[in-house]
Simulated scan of single mutants.
Amino acid sequence: MLRTLIAASFCIMPSSVSAQTMSAEDIARQIDERMKNLNPYEELLQDPDPSRRVAAMQIMLESGDRDLVRIATEYGLMAEDVVVQKAALAGLLESEPVLTMMLDASDADLRGWTNTLGGTATPEGFHYYRFDMTGYLEDELCYAQSKAPSSCFITLNSDGIFVEFRRGTGSDFARGKMQITTDGRLEGPLNLDGVSEPVTASIRLFE
């Protein structure tokens, strides 16, 4: 019985595949059609004029629309121009996102920091902290987060991208200089008071 069913399936297969097969010309026509129907927002971000591309990105970031913010953020952060990258990051931070920082601390004891900040840790030594961004501090020229709404958390300037936060209400600070990676993260060494060696910090900016 099994052999009969297998044989029957092979008899049916050629006509089924033949009915579904598309010619190269058919595929080419569909590609052309899809290219004509590019996402209109992507078209704005691909404008030949660099100033119009940046303006489109900034307007989309300021729109408050989650989908537009995501499209503009991905475009800006993946750009080769550092100025465009920083503009995209600034726009994202002004939208007050929730950011998760991961610390790779397999060789360091961060239990005190993690307990105070209400973070979580894995057996492998990865520590996760949540930061709810609260907007731009005009006087300090930086971006704050809810655990310390009047203090700098992320600073963007001509020297780079810097992260700084306090361990609770104590005198211990964490400080580091970050870079935007090719897969859309802020990453760099973080120095924490009371911890002998820097640990690698990473903040994913989009999925």
Rank of each mutant, 00 (worst) to 15 (best):
E62C: 08
S202T: 11
P48Q: 03
L89A: 06
G135A: 06
E207R: 13
C142M: 05
G118E: 08
R204Q: 14
P123D: 09
T169D: 13
R185S: 14
R166Y: 07
Y143A: 05
L103W: 03
E124R: 13
V54P: 04
S151H: 13
F206P: 01
E96V: 07
S146H: 13
A87W: 07
Q20Y: 11
T116K: 10
I161R: 05
A144R: 02
S151L: 14
M78C: 10
D139N: 14
G76E: 06
T120A: 09
H127E: 13
A56N: 06
Y41R: 08
P198F: 01
E94S: 10
F153C: 03
Q30R: 15
A79C: 10
F131W: 04
A8C: 09
C152W: 05
R66V: 10
F206W: 05
L61F: 02
A19S: 15
A79K: 06
L5G: 00
W113G: 00
A144N: 03
L5T: 08
G119I: 02
G184F: 05
A148F: 11
S15D: 07
E140A: 15
V98K: 15
K177H: 09
R166I: 05
E94H: 10
T116S: 12
S151P: 01
I71F: 03
R66D: 12
T169Y: 12
F153Q: 02
L89M: 05
L103A: 12
Y129P: 00
A201K: 00
N115D: 15
S151Q: 15
L2S: 11
A108D: 12
T116P: 03
Q58F: 03
M57T: 02
G194W: 03
V54W: 05
E42M: 10
L156I: 13
T169N: 13
R167I: 02
S63C: 01
R130Q: 12
R66I: 07
R53C: 10
